[in-house]
Simulated assay, not measured.
Amino acid sequence: MKIGIVLPSVPAYSETFFSNKIKGLKEHGFTVVIFANSSKQNSYNLSKIKVASKLTGNKFQVILVSIYKLIHSFLFHFKNSKNLYSLDSKDGVKFPQRIKNIISNNHILSEPVDWLHFGFGTMVLNRENVAKAIGAKMAVSFRGFDIGVYPIKYPNCYLKLWEKVDKIHVISNDIKDLVYQHGFIGKAEIIKITPAIDTTFFKSEEEYIYTNKNNFITIARLHWKKGLVYTFEALAILKKEGIPFHYTIIGDGTELERLKFAAHQLNLLDEVTFTGKLQHVLIKSKLKSSDLYLQYSIQEGFCNSVLEAQALGLLCIVSTAEGLPENIVNNETGWVVPKCDSKELANKIIEVINLPEDKKLDIAKNAKERVSKHFTILQQQQQFVEFYKE
């Protein structure tokens, strides 16, 4: 069976989110083709890669490339190009957009596959008919922002998709609920496959010990949806209470300047360190030297970093955002706090700091065992093999 996966860019070697899935499919005899808008890194043999033509930049060059791709599509992939044009026409897509769809999907129209799987919901917009045009079944994954935030800005953006998709992949039950909230009427099967981690790498044989240094850590893209300002506000409460701590944030993003200013306003610059993006080996080292992992997101599909922290035995406090309450079993493997409430978060952090050592040890042990039992890469790979079966 041949699977086509549509992504914004070719995943780099360190981006295990998709590469582990692709590796597992190949090991089970599937052929995998990646259709990407760009290819910044391709230093390893992941699978066959087809990159879309660049249609931005110099206007004259874009026109030439567009004409060439349009002629190429109708000369060498006439049937698929005609199918896409006809299907879009039936849907009432305007003529300029129909032509644009053929040009921008030239790399997909030229490759026969059994399944065309869009890695994010937003990747399918204006491509709802591409799978049928090439005679493939269509799957789409929803992971967080694409169903939790994007449809709020663009209401009913997926209505056309709901009529045409064959299977939907979600990473949590809350994401599944959001699919229904945004107009899904139940024609396609929705299958939950949670994220997974390398439990052989993120593993600690050592018994958890809270150092009492109150080293807190978060791994996150510096984006508003990660709730880092709320986290700062909670930590400011701890500082006023005279509780010493240090907070490390691993990750980069567009909000760095804003977050540094927020830390300054809350008088936390001495207590907060921004490391930028780090490699997995360094991330593991930072996690192992920490006491408490915080993921107080406003919106969060699931969060692999919370799984990694639990696997290493850290105590974890998360918000109620989407998949986080499935990632953590409240009061058993960590703690779940209502989102957007800095005071509640501060109270929970103080409560956890003051827990008896045996209670902390039990929570850490429960977390390690649950992650190693339910969130392994091998389990996830097998679930995706089953996903594509008839």
Results as ranks from 00 to 15, higher is better:
1 M>Q: 10
332 E>D: 05
173 N>A: 09
5 I>Q: 07
92 G>K: 00
262 A>F: 14
194 T>G: 01
312 L>A: 03
334 G>N: 01
265 Q>S: 15
93 V>H: 03
227 G>I: 02
317 I>T: 04
210 Y>E: 01
313 G>R: 01
382 Q>R: 15
262 A>K: 15
154 Y>L: 06
201 F>A: 02
377 I>M: 12
213 K>V: 15
290 S>A: 14
177 D>H: 10
35 F>K: 00
268 L>M: 00
228 L>C: 11
258 R>T: 15
100 K>H: 01
122 T>M: 08
303 C>L: 06
46 L>N: 08
240 K>M: 10
138 M>I: 10
163 E>T: 09
200 T>N: 11
311 A>Y: 06
190 I>D: 12
317 I>L: 03
33 V>G: 01
215 N>R: 13
144 G>I: 06
8 P>M: 03
227 G>T: 00
341 D>Q: 15
270 D>A: 14
114 D>R: 11
74 F>C: 08
261 F>H: 15
215 N>F: 13
133 A>I: 10
94 K>R: 05
107 H>S: 04
300 E>I: 08
55 L>M: 09
232 F>N: 01
169 H>L: 12
51 V>F: 09
190 I>Y: 11
224 W>V: 04
97 Q>V: 02
382 Q>A: 15
34 I>W: 09
303 C>T: 13
355 L>V: 02
190 I>M: 07
205 E>D: 09
310 Q>I: 07
152 I>P: 02
322 E>S: 07
167 K>S: 01
105 N>M: 00
15 E>G: 04
149 V>P: 00
377 I>W: 14
235 L>W: 05
264 H>K: 13
341 D>S: 09
51 V>Q: 00
329 V>R: 01
69 K>S: 09
221 R>A: 09
97 Q>G: 00
46 L>H: 07
33 V>M: 04
371 V>G: 06
280 H>Q: 11
362 D>G: 03
182 H>V: 14
309 A>C: 06
92 G>T: 01
64 L>T: 04
340 C>P: 02
354 N>V: 12
91 D>H: 13
97 Q>E: 11
312 L>Q: 04
252 D>S: 15
269 L>Q: 15
21 K>A: 04
